[in-house]
Computed example of a mutant assay.
Amino acid sequence: MYEPQGPGTPIAQPYGYAYPPGPPPQRPKTSGLAIAALVLGLAGCLLLPLLPAFILGIMALSQTGPGKQQGRGLAIGGLAAAAFWTIGWIALAKNTMGDLDRHTASPPSASCATPPAGHADACTLKPGECFEQPSVKGTFATVELTSCGSAHAAEAIGAFTPADTSWPGAEKLRAEAVGECRRIMEKNVDRPRLEASGVHAELSYMGPGRESWENGVRTVFCTIYSPDSQLTGSVLVPGADLSIPTG
Rank of each mutant, 00 (worst) to 15 (best):
L100V: 11
D101K: 06
D101C: 01
D101S: 15
R102E: 11
H103Q: 10
T104V: 09
P107C: 14
S109E: 12
C112T: 00
A113Q: 10
A117L: 00
G118M: 09
H119R: 07
H119S: 11
D121K: 04
C123N: 08
K126M: 12
Q133K: 14
Q133W: 05
S135W: 00
S135Q: 04
F140I: 07
F140D: 06
F140A: 01
T142P: 03
T146W: 05
S147C: 06
S147Y: 02
S147Q: 07
S147E: 08
C148M: 00
S150L: 03
A154R: 00
A154C: 01
E155D: 10
I157Y: 06
I157T: 00
A159F: 09
A159E: 01
A163N: 08
G169I: 01
E171Q: 15
E171F: 13
E171S: 15
K172N: 04
L173P: 00
R174G: 09
A175W: 01
A177R: 08
A177V: 11
G179Y: 11
R183T: 15
I184R: 11
M185V: 13
K187D: 14
V189Q: 06
D190C: 13
P192C: 03
L194F: 04
E195Q: 13
S197V: 07
S197W: 03
V199H: 05
V199G: 02
A201R: 07
A201S: 15
E202L: 12
E202F: 07
L203A: 03
S204L: 06
M206I: 15
G209F: 09
G209T: 04
E211S: 13
V217H: 01
T219R: 04
T219Y: 02
T219N: 00
V220L: 08
T223E: 06
T223C: 04
I224E: 10
Y225H: 13
S226V: 08
P227A: 00
S229R: 09
S229M: 01
